[in-house]
Design a binder for these strands. Structure first.
Length: 576
DNA sequence: GCCGTTTTCGGCCCGACTGTTTTCAGTCG
């Protein structure tokens, strides 16, 4: 049983409880447990076998007992009772954007909808709008949502694939026959979502390597075990493919499998003009196969510089490499600070609070070798604070940060992440914003506006003199929703005119701006900043994924503001 | 349901927004 399957079961129980109007906290508890499992890097069944289920926060005595029953018998009597009497179809359509448990229940019950296809049919027949509480618009939006779901891919997030792959690499390095090891495929190119995990090994004794690989402790099933390659399935149904080659030809292997397909096709066409042919085994010149131990030598033979995997998309990189004019892409070592950090500073916000204190985040920043750090908690919720209370909160945070600044452990910027509200106004007034060292503004609600409205909305934040950074500009969530559409010419113009910075948000599900738009921003001369949106110190390591997006967008240090040393960096903000 | 404790109960989740209402229910973050 995979984590995904367990999560689905728990979400179904939560949905059933919600429909049956059980106390809210019970519903929340099940969803929280599902969240914990969804985000757990370990296999939950494995944890259960090791009697470590209790280490997962959100799983208490009751759920532990139910999961025990689930793993032993494959079912849970209590869950069955809870879901009893409810139409099965509701669990199939629950979770589609804007369809929650109650909507799912109503539709499944009244229209006898059993699955997504049924839902599409009844919506197309116009049966939904005739239900009480539904109308033309909600029916149309359901159709759009189905369309969105059907286009969703079964790919995992880059961060997930990356972490799983790192563990496999650690295991593989234990085998003495492994001389070199790297990831291949879209993972090596650091694409935002990944299908399978591919790994390359340079070795003289592939047999040993493959035998070691198939013994990977988290492997569930060996799919294929050949002489030079093997594939295994991990317990969470993720496939890992291993390919080996001799060290003398390792560069060929390493170059071939990451692609992209278009990049390789272009290379092959170039080779063909010289009468050569390219493959994973090397470059064939007048029927003789030439081997290359490194990628650098492979590319050199083709008359070009080595191309960083992140930009191998056949979008001009080959021509640049031939002219020895590739961009000098930003690296993680260039990053000097992180400005999008949510601390546990005690404010009742309308969004999530962080888990760690200012001090803990400062210490983490030091350990990352940063020169500066910026705090950007969400603002106090508008509904529950009076004007003077909001002002008091801002003052309280400012005072606390001023004290930390005086300790001179690291350079600190005092800021907030303000909401860009539906009408384009901000969740803090200007008279408070102007006293902050910096302001990040982001959209956190009403994500379904038209292109025109969304553009206007963001432009009004760009026009605000106290706003410095626009966070996660497109609002997309990978595998979940596409962002709102924007008129990018206007956004870029606004940023340039008013000196605003676009964020490359490194949160694994966001990665927003995304690579293609980063490239556009670079072309337009718009400055960006890579930041993590961390809500806990551990998440500050995610900066890596943001840097990858920047690299995929051809960004150099000149494009990324937080590569600047403090003395230069602070000039862009209101540091006294 | 979970969790933490001032440790076996009481607090935890609520604000914003939308579409359908005409005062609210449901979704989302």
């Amino acid at each position: 049983m995979t984590n995904k399957e367990i999560v689905k079961i728990l979400r179904n129980v939560a949905a059933a409880y919600e429909v049956k109007e059980e106390p809210f906290f019970k519903v929340a508890a099940y969803n929280k447990a599902a969240d914990a499992i969804e985000q757990s890097p370990s296999d939950v069944k494995e944890l259960w076998e090791e009697k470590k289920l209790g280490t997962l926060s959100g799983i208490g005595a009751s759920l532990e007992k139910y999961l025990d029953e689930l793993f032993k018998t494959g079912r849970v009597k209590h869950f069955k009772e809870v879901m009893g009497g409810l139409p099965k179809g509701m669990f199939e359509i629950n979770g589609i954007p804007n369809i929650g448990p109650k909507t799912a229940y109503k539709i499944a019950l009244k229209l006898e909808v059993k699955n997504l296809d049924d839902l599409k049919k009844v919506a197309e027949k116009g049966l939904i709008k005739s239900l009480e509480g539904f109308g033309e618009k909600s029916e149309r939006e359901i159709l759009e949502a189905i369309d969105q779901v059907q286009r969703r891919t079964g790919r995992m997030l880059l961060a997930q694939a990356y972490e799983i792959a790192q563990k496999v690499l650690v295991w593989m390095r234990k085998d003495k026959s492994v001389e070199r090891i790297d990831t291949l495929g879209s993972l090596r190119r650091m694409v935002s979502t990944i299908g399978d995990i591919d790994i390359a090994v340079a070795t003289q004794s592939p047999k040993n390597v493959i035998s070691h690989f198939t013994k990977y402790p988290k492997g569930r099933k060996i799919i294929e075990e050949g002489e030079k390659s093997a594939s295994i399935l991990l317990e969470n149904d993720i496939q890992v493919d291993l390919k080996t080659d001799e060290p003398k030809s390792y560069g060929d292997l390493l170059q071939h499998f990451p692609g992209s397909k278009d990049h390789n096709i272009h290379l092959r066409e170039l080779a063909l003009k010289k009468g050569w042919s390219l493959s994973e085994y090397g470059i064939k010149i007048s029927k003789k196969l030439n081997y290359f131990p490194t990628e650098e030598e492979f590319y050199k033979k083709l008359g070009m510089d080595w191309i960083p995997p992140e930009i191998r998309e056949n979008s001009g990189e080959i021509e640049k490499a031939q002219k020895h004019d590739l961009p000098k892409l930003v690296t993680i070592e260039n990053i000097c600070g992180d400005l999008h950090l949510h601390s546990s500073f005690n404010v009742r916000t309308s969004h999530d609070l962080g888990k760690n204190s200012f001090l803990e985040m400062i210490q983490k920043a030091k350990s990352l070798g940063y020169e500066y750090i910026g705090f950007s908690n969400h603002t106090p919720a508008l509904g529950t604070h009076t004007k003077s209370e909001v002002e008091a909160v801002v003052k309280r945070q400012t005072k606390e940060i001023e004290q930390l600044k005086s300790s001179r452990v690291i350079n600190i910027l005092n800021g907030f992440e303000v909401d860009i509200l539906t009408d384009g106004s901000l969740s803090l007034p200007n008279n408070l914003l102007k006293n902050l060292d910096f302001v990040i503004a982001g959209v956190h609600s009403s994500l379904r506006q038209t292109k025109e409205k969304a553009t206007e909305r963001i432009l009004s934040a760009i026009n605000n003199p106290w706003v410095n950074i626009i966070s996660h500009p497109t609002g997309r969530l990978l595998n979940e929703r596409e962002g709102y559409e924007l008129d990018w010419d206007k956004i870029f113009d606004g940023c340039k005119k008013f000196g605003k910075i676009l964020e490359i948000n490194a949160w694994p599900q966001r990665l927003d701006l995304f690579d293609v738009m980063v490239r556009e921003a670079v072309k337009n001369g718009v400055k960006m900043i890579v930041s993590t949106d961390s809500h806990a110190v551990g998440q500050m390591d995610n900066i890596n994924y943001g840097v990858s997006v920047a690299r995929r967008g051809w960004a150099e240090c000149k494009d990324i503001l937080n590569t600047l040393p403090w003395v230069e960096f602070k000039k862009f903000f209101r540091v006294k």
